[in-house]
Write a protein that binds this DNA or RNA. Structure first.
Lengths: 213, 213
DNA sequence: TAGATTGTTAATCGATTAACAATC
DNA sequence: TAGATTGTTAATCGATTAACAATC
């Protein structure tokens, strides 16, 4: 079996290209070149072509790419040509924001449950959803075939929640708690840290001053 | 002038090390080795030592690192030994969540203003804060010396908000809208895309199936 | 001293970029 | 055909890792 190694940065960019193509498509633009995509998202044209080349030949030499087709291809590559049932555990402010975040729903993610074990939150409506007690997770996970779990609980509860998700058949975990979590190798898992990028900014501001001394 | 190039990945990890050290410190642990840090955050020991080596010699050979000291150094490196006045523009669900996100306040970020131009949001309380009309941004930015701006508005308004921030002396911008934004070179700017990592997960799940065909 | 762990160099690995033949 | 842009290879660049001397 030939094992194609695709850099994670390539997948990240693909996701960004794809969103850019959606915008072009909405604006009625039918053809786009690697240079225009590059310009639009802030990378080099060679990078755009190289990223796409991992997956096939999608363009026409001398012409460029058909926007609608390329959009379809990128969505398919990213696995967004299907619906993904997703659950959010933690119905605090962050969980609430994630439930209503349009960015999720637009891209094929279907939130089928929000869970919490705080009695003051259980039963609360968030859009179409009602906050469920955490004890119902196993049942709903099975019924709705939840494949992706989102952790939006405090750091102290994050590992426990991850364990419960894995035990109930979740295949991928997105963790918003700023802590390293252990899951079995076969589970896909990524952290989103809302504060790290802020700290990159403060580092750069401070660093710049230091260098000009 | 010797221009030290520090990889952005190093800064990201430094931020993670620093949070791990906080946890060790809270648990009363006084000494830690590169191996233990590595284990705790999921990187290699060599990586930990290399990352730290960009900035100085913080350990004792044969012994390891003093937790309190190393924590202090990492915070200083990241610029978190000072308070940063920060404003959030956009008081929707995401803006709301960011205002109340403990991860910000704990690390030296001080939210001095939340702004929106939606009349139904203006005047609303969020914790200690009251949502201000966007028109007051210039005044408050000057009074509070806002150096960091956080964009939590819809895609369509993001560029406009960024422009306004820059015009009013903001030095760094953190953008949560899933769109590329143009700012002058001297402005630090990063995007946080809540959906990209989710799409890396779906890519990996799909890709894995494809490879096992 | 023996054992442990750092700081640093050199080797390896991987990703980006430049360049150009292919081709519309 | 001339002009444009892709797909791909080779060169470059940069980051990670392995290894070990320094030293507690």
């Amino acid at each position: 079996m030939k094992t194609l190694r695709v850099p994670e940065a390539t997948v990240t960019r693909l996701s960004i290209y794809s969103r850019f193509l959606e915008r072009l498509d909405r604006n009625g633009i039918t053809t786009v070149s690697s240079g225009e995509i590059a310009e639009g998202v802030g990378v080099s044209p060679a990078q755009v072509r190289k990223d796409l080349a991992y997956f096939g030949e999608f363009g026409t030499r001398g012409v460029g790419y058909n926007v609608k087709d390329l959009l379809k291809y990128t969505l398919k590559i990213l696995g967004l040509d299907q619906e993904w049932a997703l659950a959010i555990v933690g119905a605090g402010n962050l969980g609430f924001a994630l439930c209503t975040y349009r960015g999720f729903n637009v891209r094929g993610f279907h939130i089928v449950g929000v869970f919490d074990n705080d009695p003051t939150r259980i039963g609360k409506r968030i859009g179409d959803l009602v906050v469920q007690p955490l004890t119902l997770f196993p049942e709903i996970a099975q019924k709705e075939n939840i494949r992706i779990g989102v952790i939006a609980v405090p750091t102290s509860a994050a590992q426990e929640v991850a364990d419960m998700m894995v035990k109930n058949g979740v295949e991928a975990v997105l963790n918003f708690a700023p802590v390293a979590i252990n899951v079995p190798d076969e589970i896909e898992m990524r952290n989103v840290d809302l504060s790290v990028k802020l700290e990159i900014l403060t580092f750069n501001l401070g660093f710049r001053n230091a260098q000009s001394l």
